[in-house]
Amino acid sequence: MADKESGRNALSREGVHRNESVVFIQLTKGREAIIDRDVWPRIRDQFGKRWMCIGDGQGRYYATKNTHDENGIRRHITLPRAVMDAEPGERVETLNGNALDCRRSNLHKLTTVAAAKRRKQYAAKKAAREKARYDAARERHDRKMGCAERRRQSRRDWYLPADRLAQRFKASSNDHSGGA
């Protein structure tokens, strides 16, 4: 999409996203950020039109900008923080998990302590889901291979004292050697 005055690609375009009037901001890496239409003039005037896209290596991308504060010190700001006017000590999180969706309806501010607590709860739930998924896959594999009882028995053996474990192995070897 070419800008008629300059002949360059336009850095933003207006549109509709989920029945809301928004502006799509062109980022680096071919990505776009979504921002409310009424917020865009303030962001554009305060920080400029050009924003870059940074990935975290795990498939998540963020809209960021390097800027200077009133003392001339270089600062790094993310688009969600700029939209919400977040103060130091506040965190801005997205409700839908997409950090490029910077509509105010998708953002909320948290204190650092509340955000850490929320992340800890999320991590615990995620770990429980992963463990349940792993256990279910292990059980399916055991049923398929017919070794569920053997595996359960070997798990119990890990907790036996060494002398009882040795007795169990002697008993099982006697069972297999005596039949002719």
Rank of each mutant, 00 (worst) to 15 (best):
D36M: 06
D36Q: 13
D36G: 06
R37F: 10
R37Y: 11
R37P: 00
D38Y: 11
W40G: 11
W40A: 12
R42A: 09
R42H: 05
R42F: 02
R42W: 01
I43F: 00
I43W: 01
D45M: 08
D45P: 00
Q46E: 15
F47Y: 15
F47Q: 06
F47L: 14
G48R: 07
G48P: 04
K49M: 09
K49G: 12
K49S: 15
R50M: 01
W51P: 03
W51T: 05
M52Q: 15
M52R: 15
C53S: 13
C53M: 00
C53V: 00
C53A: 11
C53Q: 03
I54T: 14
G57P: 10
G57R: 11
Q58I: 02
Q58T: 11
G59A: 06
R60A: 12
Y61D: 15
Y61K: 13
Y61A: 14
Y62Q: 03
Y62A: 00
Y62L: 02
A63E: 06
A63T: 07
T64F: 03
T64M: 13
K65D: 03
K65M: 10
N66R: 10
N66D: 09
N66H: 12
T67F: 07
H68G: 00
D69Q: 01
E70C: 09
N71H: 09
N71G: 01
N71M: 09
G72R: 12
G72P: 12
I73V: 14
I73T: 10
R74C: 15
R74D: 05
R74S: 15
I77H: 03
I77P: 03
I77N: 01
T78M: 07
T78A: 09
L79K: 04
L79E: 03
P80R: 04
P80F: 04
R81H: 08
R81D: 05
A82C: 15
A82G: 03
A82S: 05
V83D: 01
V83P: 02
E87L: 12
E87W: 07
P88G: 05
P88Q: 13
G89V: 08
G89W: 11
E93F: 05
E93A: 08
L95M: 15
N96K: 11
N96P: 06
N96H: 09
N96F: 07
N98R: 13
N98H: 08
A99D: 12
L100W: 02
L100K: 12
L100M: 12
L100I: 13
R103H: 04
R103A: 06
R104Y: 01
R104Q: 10
R104S: 09
S105Q: 13
S105R: 14
N106A: 12
N106S: 11
L107H: 10
H108C: 06
H108A: 00
H108T: 13
K109N: 01
K109L: 06
